[in-house]
Amino acid sequence: MVNPLIGVHAALGELSIIFFLWTLVEIINPTNTRIKRAKITAFIGLILILTSWIIGGYYYTKIYSQDVKPLIKEGPYPWSHNIIMETKEHIFLFLPFLSVLAATLTFKLKPYEKPNYSLIFLLVIIVLIGLSMAGMGYLISTGARAALEAKI
């Protein structure tokens, strides 16, 4: 059976990305109300990515490394661990730090100022990295499924 922690990790990560995308939309034309909402959504996004980091870390070190990794490496798509998982697990570590920066900058925003384009681009990068995590997760689970099918 698939461990439910991987689902929790993925759900928290993607929810975090949705909240940062929401923050991005709010700050494009920053009014007083939008800035207030952006501060809340950025804070929630930050908490969610930190929680995803802890849960994903627990799953990766305790379950994936011991059960799933050896399976994928013996299966038909070992690259899904050797390239995709290795890349994912390390680029993921950038996200909590970038999220702290994005939340800090959002909290410094003042209403009716011109749009902060550097913060907008930072949020775009966070969202793109987050979406790439989901894509890489799909490729890794494909590697695991293919390895299981090959055993049958």
Partner: peptide, 27 residues
């Protein structure tokens, strides 16, 4: 300054590509 954030964004992209290329070549 706004430029400082752009440097961080560019650095993030470059480092991500380096990690991807490193594991691809290693594999």
């Amino acid at each position: 300054k706004e430029n400082n954030i752009y440097y961080t964004i560019i650095l993030t992209i470059v480092l991500s590509i380096i990690i991807l290329l490193f594991f691809t070549i290693e594999s």
